[in-house]
Design a binder for these strands. Structure first.
Length: 471
DNA sequence: CCTCGACCGCCT
DNA sequence: GGCGGTCGAG
């Protein structure tokens, strides 16, 4: 039994092994997708189970997915009351959205090929690949990506999502409103065959239609684009963000926005030169782009690497967090750095960061950052904590469980730290005997001339010098 | 250079 | 106490 195309949607043939929306849109790359279940009960395996929506600058993109097809539709804001869109215009809009989808999901990249390559390179990857199909890197907007990950420090996906949502609602005007998609079970079983009546065509909603929904539908949801740099740049923003629960990240977000929009001021009302500047980092080397990012407030190595990987096309970059560090020590022969805290945790020093980064880049190759994303998503803790619902044939309760039965490297205790404060060290501290390959520093041309640097880059010049001196 | 504590807020 | 860190002082 095949799945009929939902009303208002268009079909793009796409095997689930190439893209799993359920995994990718909730694994902590983007924090702005709305997710709606399409049924309160069981759904035929050939049918989409959820609808996913994202508000862009000028439209809301809606997606559904079955095992072999991606369904997409576009909702535009209300235009002129009397304007009725022509078939030609609708087709243009559809194509724009399709182009956006291809770019955003980087559909030109053959994920199956990558999975095969990683499996060949790495038995660890091979052992769990089947449980986490279709996990690929999004190509996000750099500005949104940067701000979102400034918010991510010392934080969890759940709260980051709330903060980003709040950011959009408070600093960006509403684009349009929509009711949630109709549930399969809301109407008769026939709804399975001809899904929703919700206005999800390329046709703009009529004003009256929106107003009517506004008064009758309590669950109507309003969509806001991501705010512009200028909207977050004023100094008053910081205190507002504080009151919105951003904590110490409030200053980071506002300062970064200010740095960016002062260095790249809008020439006109509708100019986005600051955002355009960030996009130019795609054309720079990884090293150059990283230095530029490190200049912003609240951006350290980890956040910079996330942005490099997730929106600046630096596919080889592997962001290192505590989870990745643990895994690298346990399975990839990276040393613990010989120092453990009294609570058993290993501090993440710049040196360790580079070691982990270099090792995983070596193991996974050109697309190491993409492989990292699969591994990170595979971290069950994220799943259980944030309610992700990716089907996993083998239930596991921790990352370690994912690797049971592997040809894991031999494990030996690491040498006792000189000052262990009498505390027992945890198993996670154990490291394999495998020798750690000397890190091969990658690439990285260095900018010498100050005058060529943006304001953002100059502000943290001291840090830059420090970091550059390491190379 | 490197190490360390503080930092918001929300959750266990 | 912990969290997919970063900053600034020592």
């Amino acid at each position: 039994m095949s799945c009929p195309i939902p009303a208002g949607f268009h079909a793009l043939p796409l095997p689930i092994v190439q893209l799993s929306l359920a995994a990718v849109l909730k694994c902590g790359q983007s924090f702005r997708w709305s997710i709606f279940p399409l049924s309160s009960g069981p759904v035929p395996p050939s049918h989409p189970t959820h609808e996913y929506r994202l508000c862009l600058r000028d439209r809301v993109v809606c997606l559904r997915q079955s095992p072999d097809t991606l369904y997409y539709s576009t909702v535009l804001p209300t235009r002129d009351q009397h304007a009725s869109s022509t078939i030609f215009e609708e087709e243009k809009v559809r194509k724009e959205t399709l182009d956006w989808i291809r770019d955003y999901f980087q559909l030109d990249v053959d994920l199956l090929h990558l999975y095969n390559d990683w499996s060949q390179r790495d038995p660890v990857f091979k052992s769990f690949r089947d449980r986490f199909e279709g996990i690929r890197m999004l190509r996000q907007d750099p500005w949104e990506n940067l701000i979102s990950f400034i918010c991510s420090s010392n934080n969890n996906i759940s709260r980051i999502t709330k903060m980003v949502t709040s950011l959009c609602e408070h600093f960006s005007p509403p684009l349009l409103s929509l009711p949630p998609p109709e549930l399969y079970s809301d109407s008769s079983a026939s709804s399975l065959l001809s899904p929703p009546a919700t206005p999800l065509s390329e046709r703009p909603l009529s004003q009256s239609q929106q107003q009517e929904d506004m008064s009758t539908e309590r669950s109507l949801r309003t969509y806001h684009p991501f705010p512009s740099p200028a909207a977050l740049a004023s100094s008053s923003v910081a205190s507002i963000l504080r009151s919105l629960g951003f904590g110490y990240r409030a200053e980071y977000v506002q300062k970064t926005a200010q740095m960016l929009s002062e260095a790249h001021p809008p020439k006109s009302e509708d100019d986005d030169s600051a955002e355009r500047y960030l996009r130019t980092l795609r054309d720079m080397s990884t090293g150059e782009a990283r230095e530029a990012l490190l200049g912003f407030m609240g951006v350290g190595r980890k956040v910079a690497d996330c942005v490099l990987l997730m929106s600046l096309d630096k596919k080889e970059v592997v962001p290192v967090d505590t989870h990745v560090h643990q895994i690298a020590m346990r399975y990839y022969g990276v040393s613990s750095g010989s120092k453990a805290r009294s609570n058993g945790k290993i501090p993440m020093t710049p040196k360790i960061y580079d070691q982990v980064n270099a090792k995983l880049a070596e193991v996974w190759g050109d697309y190491a950052g993409w492989a990292h994303s699969v591994l990170f998503t595979a971290d069950l803790k994220s799943f259980s904590t944030y309610g992700l619902d990716i089907p996993t044939p083998v239930p596991a309760s921790s990352v370690s469980d994912l690797f049971t039965g592997l040809p894991t490297p031999p494990i030996t205790p690491s040498p006792s730290p000189t000052k262990s404060r009498g505390k027992r060290r945890k198993a996670a501290v154990l490291v394999p005997e495998t020798s750690i390959s000397a890190k091969e520093e990658s690439t990285d041309e260095i900018i010498q001339d100050d005058s060529s640097l943006s304001l953002a880059e100059r502000v943290k010049k001291r840090r830059r010098v420090t970091i550059l001196a390491k190379r």
